[in-house]
Design a protein around this nucleic acid. Structure first.
Lengths: 195, 195, 195, 195
DNA sequence: GCTTAAACGAGACGGTACGTCCAGTCTTACT
DNA sequence: AGTAAGACTGGACGTACCGTCTCGTTTAAGC
C-alpha cells in the first residue's frame, strides 16, 4: 500500500513557477497571515489540487519560493588574508539581502512557519542556516590557522554570536538592519576573537 | 455613534483568568497554530463574545497570558561590582525562563504573532524587550563608569549583541539553550568590551 | 455523547425562507442536477453552514421546499354522491398542480433524489403520497358503501392503478399531462370498478 | 475543422465490456449517486479518456450497460387467442425482470438520469419504452379484431394504464413488485376493456 | 514484416463543489 | 450591563471528481 506519490517527471514546470511567484507576490501584498492556498492558486491560474499534489502545506510552498530566490549555494567566502574585510563583505551582502523586498517577504514567512512546523524547521536549518554559517566558520578556521583568531573558542558558537544580533534586530524589528549596524557588530565581534 | 467601549469595572475577573489559563494550556497541548478562539472559550467555559469584548485578537490574548506569567517588571540588576558575575546571573535566569514550558509556549506564540501584527510587535518591544535590555544597559553603563567597560561602544548595540545569540538559538532551534551556551557567549562578550 | 443538535427555537426564520425560495428558483433556472448547496447559500445570502446545520443534504432542502409549496394537507375529497364527478375534480386538480412550474421543478427534483436516498423516499411516501392516496381511498370506500363500486377489489391497489398512469406519463415524459388524458384514464378506471 | 470522431473499427471491445460491467457492479455496490467516471475507469482498468472517447456522459454509459443486459428486442407477444393469459405472461416476465439485481441497478440509474437529460430521455422512450409498449399494443389490437376488447378506447392510453401502476410502485417503492400485484392490476385492466 | 497512426493506460491539469472548521458579529436568556 | 450559549454570514480548508490534455505503449491496417 504505497502512498500514491505523483510522478515528478510529468510535473508542469510553468505551473510550479507560477505558484512560487504568486506566493511571493501575495505575501508582499497582503501579509503572510492573510495569504491562503486558495488565493495562491487563483493568482497562479492553477487548480488547488496542483498545489496540494506537490506540497504538503502552504509553508512548504513558501520554503520552495524562498529557495527559488536563493538559488546559489553560498560556496566559499573570499579570503583576502584580511578576516575583518572579508567578514564585512559578507555581512554587508547579508544586510542587502535582508532588505530586498522579495527575500524579506519570503524569509519572514518562513521564519513564522518554522515556529509551528518542526520538519520545516529542520529543512530550513539544514538548507539555509547551516550552509551559510558553515562557510563563515571555514573562513574563521582559516583565520585561526593564520593566527588572526584565538584558538580557545568554539567556532560553532562564534558564528551564532556573529549572526544572532542580525536575526534579533530583523525578527524583532528593534531597528533598521543597516551596514552601520553590521559594522558596529563586527567591531565588537573581532575584538572578542583577537589576541 | 460612540465606540461602545465596555466598562472595565464590571469585568468578570474569574473569566479573565480562565481565558488566559486556557490559552496557555491549549498552546502547550496542540501547538499555537491549532489553537482557536472558539477552543479557548470552550476550555475556559466562557462565551466567545467575552473574549472579543476584551481582546482584539487571539494574539492579544496570548500577549496578556504571557504578561501574566511575567508579572514582575525586572527592576534593577544586582551590582556586586563584578560585571561578569552580575551578567552571568541574569543570563542564567534568562536561560531558565526560556526553558520553562509555560513561558516557552506563550513566548513562542507571541514571537510568531509579532511577525504579522505590527501593533503587537510595538507592544512587545515596549513592554518586554526594552525593559529587560534597559536594565542590562544601565548595569553596563555603571560598569563603564567604573572603568570595566570601554567607552567607545554604543550600549544599545551592545545589549542586542548580548541577547541576539540567545534569541537566535531559541527561535531557530539550532541547539539547546543551556547555561554552558550562556557562559560561552558571555566570555566572548566580555572580551569584546574590555580594554 | 450526544449529537450536538442545534436548538430549533433559535432558528432564523428569515434564513429558512430564503433558502427554500432560493432552492426552487435555482432548480427552475439551471435544472436540479446543476444546483449546488453553495449556489443555494449564495442566492439566499446565507452561510453554507446554516444549510448544513438544519438539513442533512441538498435533497432534504428540496423536500422542505416542496412541502412549503404544498402546505395544505389534502383533507377530504368532496362527496357529491357522484364518484366519477368527484374523482374528475381531483384528477384535474392534480393535472393542474403537476403543470405548475414551481411544483414541477421541486417535485421532479424530489423524485430524482428519492431514487438514491431511502430515508427521503420513506418521508416522501409518508408525507406526500400516502395522504393523497388515502383521501381518494376513503372516497372510494364511501362509494363502495353506496354500491357504486364493486366490493371484490383491494382499494390500495386500486388507487395505485388510478395514479400510476399519471406518474408514468409525467416521470417518463411520454406525453403531455392534460385533463383529456385524465378523463381517458378515469373512464377506463371507472369501468374497471363498476358492476 | 473536423470533429475528430474516433474510428469505431479500432475500438477495443475488451475495454468496452469491462467498462459496462464495472458500471453495473459499482452501481450495485455503492449506489448510482456515488458512482464516478473515475471509479468506473479504475475498476475497468481503463483510462478515463477511453470512456470519454466513446460516451458523452456517465448516463450514456449506464444506458449502454442497460441495453447490454436487454439484448433481445421484444419481438412479438405470443397470441394464444386468450388475451388475458397472454398479458399475464408478459407482466410476470416484466415483474421478474424488474426484480433482477443487475437490471434493477441499471434501470433505476437510467430512470434517475432521464430526469435531467432530455436527450437521454428521448433515447430511452424510443429504444426501451416504445418497443415494449408497441408489442403489447399490437396484441391488444389483435384482441380488438377478435372482439375481446372494446373498440372505443385509445390503445396508446390503454398501454400506459397497464404499465403505469408497475412503474409507479417500482419507482416510488410503495410496495413489492410481485406477480400477485401484476394479477390484481391485470384483473382490473381486463374488466376496463371488456364489453 | 514493417511502418505508422490510432486507440490505449495512466495520470497531471484547471476547475467546481463538497462538507467542515473557525473568525468575528449578533441575539437571547440568565445573573 | 456583563455573561454563557450558540446561531449567524463569510471564507478557507483539504478532498473528490469533472472533463481536457499530454505522455509513453500497445495494436492493428496498409504498405
Amino acid at each position: 500500500m504505497t502512498d500514491k506519490a505523483p510522478d515528478p517527471t510529468r510535473r508542469n514546470e510553468r505551473s510550479r513557477q507560477a505558484i512560487l511567484a504568486a506566493a511571493i507576490e501575495l505575501i508582499k501584498e497582503v501579509g503572510y497571515a492573510r495569504v491562503s492556498v486558495e488565493a495562491i492558486a487563483a493568482r497562479a491560474g492553477v487548480g488547488k489540487q496542483t498545489i496540494y499534489r506537490w506540497w504538503p502545506s502552504k509553508a512548504a510552498v513558501v520554503f520552495d519560493a524562498f529557495l527559488a530566490l536563493n538559488p546559489a549555494a553560498p560556496g566559499e567566502l573570499p579570503d583576502t588574508g584580511d578576516i575583518v574585510a572579508d567578514l564585512r563583505l559578507v555581512l554587508h551582502a547579508t544586510v542587502a539581502e535582508f532588505n530586498d523586498p522579495d527575500f524579506e517577504a519570503a524569509y519572514r514567512a518562513l521564519n513564522t512557519d518554522v515556529q509551528d512546523d518542526p520538519a520545516l524547521g529542520e529543512r530550513m536549518r539544514e538548507q539555509v542556516l547551516r550552509p551559510t554559517l558553515a562557510t563563515v566558520k571555514r573562513r574563521l578556521a582559516a583565520a585561526q590557522e593564520a593566527g588572526q583568531v584565538r584558538r580557545d573558542v568554539d567556532l560553532d558558537v562564534v558564528v551564532e554570536v556573529l549572526y544572532g544580533p542580525f536575526y534579533y534586530r530583523w525578527l524583532l524589528r528593534t531597528g533598521e538592519l543597516t551596514t552601520g549596524y553590521a559594522d558596529d557588530v563586527l567591531t565588537l565581534f573581532v575584538r572578542a576573537l583577537s589576541g
